[in-house]
Simulated assay, not measured.
Amino acid sequence: MIEKLENLPEGVIGFKIHTKLAAEDYQQVLAPAVEQATQVGPIRCVLVIEEFHGMTGGAVKDDLKLGMEHLRGWKRIAVVTDIAWISNLTGLFGWMIPGETKVFPLAEQQSAIAWAAEPGPDQASN
Rank of each mutant, 00 (worst) to 15 (best):
Ile2Gln: 00
Ile2Cys: 01
Leu5Ile: 11
Glu6Trp: 04
Glu6Leu: 08
Glu6Ile: 14
Asn7Val: 03
Asn7Leu: 03
Leu8Pro: 05
Pro9Phe: 04
Pro9Asn: 05
Glu10Met: 07
Val12Thr: 04
Val12Asp: 03
Ile13Ala: 13
Gly14Tyr: 01
His18Ile: 14
His18Ser: 15
Thr19Gly: 13
Thr19Arg: 15
Lys20Tyr: 00
Lys20Ile: 03
Ala22Lys: 12
Ala22Trp: 11
Ala22Thr: 09
Ala23Ile: 13
Tyr26Asn: 05
Val29Pro: 08
Leu30Pro: 02
Ala31His: 06
Ala31Ile: 13
Ala31Ser: 12
Pro32Cys: 08
Val34Thr: 13
Glu35Cys: 00
Gln36His: 09
Gln36Phe: 08
Ala37Ser: 09
Thr38Ala: 06
Gln39Met: 12
Val40Phe: 05
Val40His: 08
Arg44Tyr: 07
Arg44Trp: 07
Cys45Leu: 15
Cys45Arg: 14
Val46Trp: 02
Ile49His: 09
Ile49Asp: 12
Glu50His: 08
Glu50Cys: 06
Glu51His: 10
Phe52Trp: 10
Gly54Phe: 06
Gly54Val: 05
Met55Gly: 04
Met55Phe: 09
Thr56Asp: 12
Thr56Met: 10
Thr56Val: 08
Gly58Ala: 10
Ala59Val: 04
Lys61Ile: 05
Asp62Gly: 12
Asp62Cys: 11
Asp63Thr: 06
Asp63Arg: 02
Leu64Thr: 04
Lys65Pro: 04
Leu66Glu: 01
Leu66Pro: 01
Met68Asp: 03
Leu71Cys: 01
Gly73Ile: 00
Trp74Val: 02
Lys75Leu: 03
Arg76Trp: 06
Arg76Leu: 04
Arg76Pro: 04
Ile77Val: 12
Val79Gly: 00
Val80Met: 09
Thr81Gly: 01
Asp82Pro: 06
Asp82Asn: 15
Asp82Ala: 05
Ile83Ser: 01
Ile83Met: 05
Ala84Ser: 07
Ala84Asp: 06
Ala84Arg: 09
Ile86Asp: 05
Ser87Asn: 07
Ser87Leu: 06
Thr90Pro: 06
Leu92Cys: 08
Leu92Arg: 14
Phe93Pro: 15
Phe93Val: 12
Phe93Leu: 15
Phe93Trp: 15
Phe93Tyr: 15
Gly94Cys: 07
Gly94Phe: 04
Trp95Cys: 05
Met96Trp: 06
Pro98Lys: 01
Glu100Arg: 13
Lys102Glu: 02
Phe104Thr: 00
Phe104Asp: 00
Pro105Gln: 09
Pro105Met: 07
Pro105Gly: 01
Gln109Arg: 10
Gln109Leu: 08
Ala112Asp: 02
Ile113Gly: 03
Ala114Pro: 15
Ala114Tyr: 14
Trp115Asp: 14
Trp115Tyr: 13
Ala116Gly: 05
Ala117Cys: 07
Ala117Val: 09
Glu118Lys: 11
Pro119Tyr: 15
Pro119Met: 15
Pro121Ile: 03
Asp122Lys: 14
Asp122Tyr: 13
Gln123Met: 13
Ser125Phe: 12
